[in-house]
Protein backbone atom coordinates (compact mmCIF):
# COMPACT_ATOMS: atom_id res chain seq x y z
CA UNK A 1 0.00 0.00 0.00
CA UNK A 2 1.17 3.49 -0.72
CA UNK A 3 2.14 6.02 1.91
CA UNK A 4 -1.05 8.06 1.46
CA UNK A 5 -3.28 4.99 1.56
CA UNK A 6 -1.90 4.00 4.97
CA UNK A 7 -2.63 7.45 6.33
CA UNK A 8 -6.13 7.36 4.89
CA UNK A 9 -6.74 3.91 6.34
CA UNK A 10 -5.53 5.08 9.76
CA UNK A 11 -7.85 8.09 9.63
CA UNK A 12 -10.81 5.93 8.63
CA UNK A 13 -10.13 3.53 11.49
CA UNK A 14 -10.01 6.44 13.92
CA UNK A 15 -13.28 7.71 12.45
CA UNK A 16 -15.18 4.45 12.72
CA UNK A 17 -13.81 3.46 16.15
CA UNK A 18 -14.48 6.83 17.74
CA UNK A 19 -17.72 7.34 15.83
CA UNK A 20 -19.42 4.17 17.04
CA UNK A 21 -18.28 4.58 20.64
CA UNK A 22 -18.91 8.31 20.74
CA UNK A 23 -22.53 8.03 19.60
CA UNK A 24 -23.33 6.25 22.86
CA UNK A 25 -21.64 9.00 24.85
CA UNK A 26 -23.68 11.69 23.12
CA UNK A 27 -26.89 9.90 24.12
CA UNK A 28 -25.68 9.46 27.69
CA UNK A 29 -24.86 13.16 27.94
CA UNK A 30 -21.27 12.31 28.63
CA UNK A 31 -19.67 14.20 25.78
CA UNK A 32 -17.64 16.31 28.17
CA UNK A 33 -16.51 13.30 30.16
CA UNK A 34 -15.17 11.96 26.87
CA UNK A 35 -13.49 15.31 26.33
CA UNK A 36 -11.93 15.01 29.78
CA UNK A 37 -10.71 11.46 29.21
CA UNK A 38 -9.18 12.28 25.87
CA UNK A 39 -7.16 15.02 27.56
CA UNK A 40 -6.06 12.98 30.52
CA UNK A 41 -4.88 9.88 28.65
CA UNK A 42 -1.88 12.05 27.84
CA UNK A 43 -0.85 11.65 31.48
CA UNK A 44 -1.26 7.89 31.16
CA UNK A 45 0.96 7.82 28.10
CA UNK A 46 3.65 10.01 29.68
CA UNK A 47 3.37 8.01 32.88
CA UNK A 48 3.86 4.75 30.99
CA UNK A 49 6.90 6.28 29.31
CA UNK A 50 8.48 7.22 32.64
CA UNK A 51 7.90 3.74 34.01
CA UNK A 52 9.11 1.75 30.98
CA UNK A 53 11.38 4.35 29.37
CA UNK A 54 10.01 3.46 25.96
CA UNK A 55 7.09 4.34 23.74
CA UNK A 56 5.88 0.79 23.57
CA UNK A 57 2.27 0.19 22.58
CA UNK A 58 1.06 -2.07 25.35
CA UNK A 59 2.27 -0.14 28.45
CA UNK A 60 0.94 3.04 26.83
CA UNK A 61 -2.42 1.39 26.30
CA UNK A 62 -2.56 0.20 29.90
CA UNK A 63 -1.41 3.55 31.28
CA UNK A 64 -4.00 5.41 29.24
CA UNK A 65 -6.80 3.05 30.21
CA UNK A 66 -5.89 3.39 33.89
CA UNK A 67 -5.78 7.19 33.82
CA UNK A 68 -8.96 7.30 31.73
CA UNK A 69 -10.84 5.23 34.28
CA UNK A 70 -9.32 7.27 37.11
CA UNK A 71 -10.64 10.42 35.43
CA UNK A 72 -14.14 8.96 35.35
CA UNK A 73 -13.74 7.87 38.97
CA UNK A 74 -12.51 11.26 40.23
CA UNK A 75 -15.30 13.07 38.42
CA UNK A 76 -17.81 10.72 39.97
CA UNK A 77 -16.35 11.14 43.47
CA UNK A 78 -16.44 14.94 43.23
CA UNK A 79 -19.90 14.79 41.73
CA UNK A 80 -21.27 12.69 44.56
CA UNK A 81 -19.60 14.93 47.15
CA UNK A 82 -21.73 17.80 45.88
CA UNK A 83 -19.55 19.55 43.28
CA UNK A 84 -21.65 20.38 40.21
CA UNK A 85 -20.76 17.92 37.49
CA UNK A 86 -19.46 20.29 34.80
CA UNK A 87 -17.09 21.95 37.27
CA UNK A 88 -16.04 18.53 38.54
CA UNK A 89 -15.12 17.51 35.00
CA UNK A 90 -13.33 20.82 34.47
CA UNK A 91 -11.15 20.61 37.54
CA UNK A 92 -10.21 16.95 37.07
CA UNK A 93 -9.22 17.06 33.44
CA UNK A 94 -7.36 20.38 33.52
CA UNK A 95 -5.36 19.18 36.52
CA UNK A 96 -4.38 15.82 35.04
CA UNK A 97 -3.77 17.28 31.58
CA UNK A 98 -1.59 20.07 33.00
CA UNK A 99 0.41 17.44 34.87
CA UNK A 100 0.81 15.48 31.65
CA UNK A 101 2.04 18.51 29.72
CA UNK A 102 4.51 19.51 32.45
CA UNK A 103 5.85 15.94 32.60
CA UNK A 104 6.26 15.86 28.82
CA UNK A 105 8.58 18.83 29.01
CA UNK A 106 10.92 16.69 31.12
CA UNK A 107 11.08 14.07 28.39
CA UNK A 108 14.29 14.46 26.41
CA UNK A 109 14.29 15.76 22.84
CA UNK A 110 15.54 12.42 21.56
CA UNK A 111 12.20 10.79 22.33
CA UNK A 112 9.38 11.21 19.89
CA UNK A 113 6.88 12.63 22.34
CA UNK A 114 6.17 16.31 22.67
CA UNK A 115 3.39 18.77 23.27
CA UNK A 116 2.77 19.32 19.57
CA UNK A 117 2.34 15.58 19.17
CA UNK A 118 -0.07 15.49 22.09
CA UNK A 119 -2.30 18.10 20.49
CA UNK A 120 -2.50 17.12 16.86
CA UNK A 121 -0.88 13.75 16.51
CA UNK A 122 1.64 12.75 13.92
CA UNK A 123 -0.46 10.97 11.36
CA UNK A 124 2.14 11.73 8.72
CA UNK A 125 4.64 9.51 10.55
CA UNK A 126 2.25 6.59 10.99
CA UNK A 127 3.28 4.70 7.82
CA UNK A 128 6.96 4.69 8.92
CA UNK A 129 6.31 3.12 12.30
CA UNK A 130 5.80 -0.40 11.12
CA UNK A 131 6.44 -3.65 12.89
CA UNK A 132 7.69 -6.98 11.69
CA UNK A 133 6.47 -10.46 12.40
CA UNK A 134 8.80 -13.34 11.49
CA UNK A 135 10.73 -10.98 9.32
CA UNK A 136 7.65 -9.92 7.41
CA UNK A 137 6.62 -6.30 7.32
CA UNK A 138 3.12 -6.14 8.80
CA UNK A 139 2.42 -2.48 8.11
CA UNK A 140 1.99 0.42 10.52
CA UNK A 141 1.57 -0.37 14.22
CA UNK A 142 -1.18 2.21 14.60
CA UNK A 143 -3.37 0.45 12.04
CA UNK A 144 -3.13 -2.83 13.96
CA UNK A 145 -3.75 -1.10 17.27
CA UNK A 146 -6.79 0.76 15.95
CA UNK A 147 -8.09 -2.39 14.31
CA UNK A 148 -7.80 -4.29 17.58
CA UNK A 149 -9.57 -1.56 19.55
CA UNK A 150 -12.31 -1.36 16.94
CA UNK A 151 -12.80 -5.10 17.23
CA UNK A 152 -12.92 -4.96 21.04
CA UNK A 153 -15.37 -2.06 21.06
CA UNK A 154 -17.72 -3.61 18.52
CA UNK A 155 -17.61 -6.95 20.34
CA UNK A 156 -18.40 -5.31 23.69
CA UNK A 157 -21.24 -3.26 22.20
CA UNK A 158 -22.72 -6.39 20.64
CA UNK A 159 -22.41 -8.38 23.86
CA UNK A 160 -23.92 -5.70 26.06
CA UNK A 161 -26.14 -4.12 23.43
CA UNK A 162 -29.44 -4.15 25.28
CA UNK A 163 -27.84 -3.30 28.63
CA UNK A 164 -26.09 -0.30 27.08
CA UNK A 165 -29.33 0.78 25.47
CA UNK A 166 -31.43 0.50 28.62
CA UNK A 167 -28.89 2.11 30.97
CA UNK A 168 -28.64 4.97 28.50
CA UNK A 169 -32.37 5.53 28.14
CA UNK A 170 -33.50 4.91 31.72
CA UNK A 171 -30.73 4.13 34.21
CA UNK A 172 -33.09 3.97 37.20
CA UNK A 173 -35.24 1.34 35.59
CA UNK A 174 -32.10 -0.54 34.57
CA UNK A 175 -30.94 -0.53 38.18
CA UNK A 176 -34.37 -1.71 39.26
CA UNK A 177 -34.33 -4.79 37.09
CA UNK A 178 -30.84 -5.65 38.24
CA UNK A 179 -28.60 -4.43 35.42
CA UNK A 180 -25.18 -3.44 36.81
CA UNK A 181 -25.26 0.20 35.70
CA UNK A 182 -21.90 1.07 37.23
CA UNK A 183 -20.24 -1.78 35.40
CA UNK A 184 -21.70 -0.60 32.09
CA UNK A 185 -20.58 2.96 32.87
CA UNK A 186 -16.97 1.99 33.48
CA UNK A 187 -17.06 -0.41 30.54
CA UNK A 188 -17.90 2.51 28.29
CA UNK A 189 -15.27 4.71 29.92
CA UNK A 190 -12.76 1.94 29.30
CA UNK A 191 -13.80 1.82 25.65
CA UNK A 192 -13.36 5.59 25.38
CA UNK A 193 -9.90 5.38 26.92
CA UNK A 194 -8.87 2.61 24.53
CA UNK A 195 -10.23 4.47 21.50
CA UNK A 196 -8.47 7.63 22.59
CA UNK A 197 -5.08 6.08 23.15
CA UNK A 198 -5.25 4.10 19.92
CA UNK A 199 -6.11 7.31 18.06
CA UNK A 200 -3.58 9.39 19.98
CA UNK A 201 -0.65 8.79 17.64
CA UNK A 202 -2.75 9.69 14.65
CA UNK A 203 -4.88 12.65 15.68
CA UNK A 204 -3.64 13.73 19.10
CA UNK A 205 -5.37 13.96 22.43
CA UNK A 206 -7.57 16.95 21.76
CA UNK A 207 -8.66 16.38 18.20
CA UNK A 208 -9.84 12.92 19.11
CA UNK A 209 -12.64 14.70 20.97
CA UNK A 210 -14.02 15.90 17.66
CA UNK A 211 -13.97 12.35 16.31
CA UNK A 212 -15.71 11.06 19.45
CA UNK A 213 -18.48 13.61 19.79
CA UNK A 214 -19.25 15.25 16.47
CA UNK A 215 -20.11 12.21 14.28
CA UNK A 216 -22.38 10.90 17.04
CA UNK A 217 -24.17 14.23 17.35
CA UNK A 218 -24.51 14.42 13.57
CA UNK A 219 -26.03 10.94 13.41
CA UNK A 220 -28.37 11.89 16.25
CA UNK A 221 -29.82 14.58 14.00
CA UNK A 222 -30.38 12.12 11.16
CA UNK A 223 -31.99 9.02 12.62
CA UNK A 224 -34.50 7.83 15.18
CA UNK A 225 -33.09 4.36 15.69
CA UNK A 226 -30.40 3.48 18.18
CA UNK A 227 -28.56 0.88 16.11
CA UNK A 228 -28.76 3.02 12.97
CA UNK A 229 -27.35 5.94 14.92
CA UNK A 230 -24.29 3.91 15.99
CA UNK A 231 -23.60 2.67 12.47
CA UNK A 232 -24.26 6.03 10.86
CA UNK A 233 -21.96 7.70 13.36
CA UNK A 234 -19.18 5.29 12.40
CA UNK A 235 -19.82 6.01 8.75
CA UNK A 236 -19.74 9.78 9.31
CA UNK A 237 -16.43 9.32 11.13
CA UNK A 238 -14.99 7.54 8.08
CA UNK A 239 -16.42 10.14 5.72
CA UNK A 240 -14.86 12.93 7.79
CA UNK A 241 -11.50 11.19 7.68
CA UNK A 242 -11.65 10.91 3.89
CA UNK A 243 -12.82 14.48 3.37
CA UNK A 244 -10.29 15.75 5.86
CA UNK A 245 -7.41 13.86 4.32
CA UNK A 246 -7.96 15.18 0.81
CA UNK A 247 -8.53 18.78 1.89
CA UNK A 248 -5.41 18.60 4.03
CA UNK A 249 -3.38 17.45 1.05
CA UNK A 250 -4.96 20.15 -1.08
CA UNK A 251 -4.26 23.04 1.30
CA UNK A 252 -1.11 21.62 2.83
CA UNK A 253 -2.35 21.74 6.43
CA UNK A 254 -2.54 19.44 9.47
CA UNK A 255 -4.26 16.20 8.40
CA UNK A 256 -5.71 15.47 11.83
CA UNK A 257 -6.95 19.04 12.16
CA UNK A 258 -8.60 18.88 8.75
CA UNK A 259 -10.31 15.60 9.65
CA UNK A 260 -11.70 17.17 12.81
CA UNK A 261 -12.83 20.21 10.83
CA UNK A 262 -14.57 17.90 8.36
CA UNK A 263 -16.66 16.44 11.20
CA UNK A 264 -17.66 20.01 11.97
CA UNK A 265 -18.67 20.70 8.37
CA UNK A 266 -20.80 17.55 8.21
CA UNK A 267 -22.40 18.43 11.53
CA UNK A 268 -23.15 21.91 10.26
CA UNK A 269 -24.99 20.48 7.27
CA UNK A 270 -27.00 18.09 9.43
CA UNK A 271 -27.85 20.87 11.88
CA UNK A 272 -29.41 22.95 9.14
CA UNK A 273 -30.49 20.44 6.52
CA UNK A 274 -31.35 17.17 8.28
CA UNK A 275 -34.58 15.93 6.63
CA UNK A 276 -36.39 15.60 9.94
CA UNK A 277 -34.57 17.72 12.50
CA UNK A 278 -32.70 20.34 10.43
CA UNK A 279 -33.11 23.98 11.39
CA UNK A 280 -33.89 25.08 7.85
CA UNK A 281 -36.01 22.04 6.98
CA UNK A 282 -38.09 22.61 10.08
CA UNK A 283 -38.54 26.27 9.14
CA UNK A 284 -39.47 25.34 5.61
CA UNK A 285 -41.95 22.72 6.81
CA UNK A 286 -43.62 25.21 9.14
CA UNK A 287 -43.84 27.72 6.33
CA UNK A 288 -45.45 25.19 4.03
CA UNK A 289 -47.93 24.23 6.74
CA UNK A 290 -48.95 27.84 7.17
CA UNK A 291 -49.63 28.56 3.50
Amino acid sequence: MSYGAWILLTGCLVGITCGITGAILVLRKMAMLADAISHTVLLGIVGAFFVTQSLNGLPMLIGAAVVGLLTALFVQLLDSSGVQSDAAIGVVFTSLFALGVVLISFVGDSVHLDVQHALMGEIAFIPWETFELNGMNMGPKAVWLLGAVLFINVALIMLFYKEIKLTTFDPQYAALIGIPIMFIHYLLMGMVSLSTVASFDAVGAILVVAMLIVPGATAYLLTDRFIVMLLLSGFIGVLSAVLGYFSAVLFNVSIAGAMACATGVLFFFALFLSPKYGFLTKKLRNKMLKT
Binding site: K165, F169, D170, A174, I177, I179, Y220, D224, F226
Partner: peptide, 19 residues
Protein backbone atom coordinates in the same frame (compact mmCIF):
# COMPACT_ATOMS: atom_id res chain seq x y z
CA UNK B 1 -36.09 10.10 31.05
CA UNK B 2 -35.06 11.88 27.87
CA UNK B 3 -37.70 11.15 25.26
CA UNK B 4 -35.39 12.26 22.44
CA UNK B 5 -33.71 8.87 22.71
CA UNK B 6 -33.63 7.37 19.21
CA UNK B 7 -36.02 4.46 19.40
CA UNK B 8 -39.68 3.51 19.06
CA UNK B 9 -42.46 2.61 21.48
CA UNK B 10 -42.21 -1.15 20.99
CA UNK B 11 -38.53 -1.09 21.86
CA UNK B 12 -39.21 0.69 25.16
CA UNK B 13 -41.83 -1.91 26.08
CA UNK B 14 -39.35 -4.68 25.25
CA UNK B 15 -37.03 -3.21 27.88
CA UNK B 16 -39.49 -4.51 30.44
CA UNK B 17 -38.37 -8.04 29.50
CA UNK B 18 -34.63 -7.40 29.83
CA UNK B 19 -34.60 -8.60 33.43
Amino acid sequence: VDWDFPTNALDIVLMGRYG
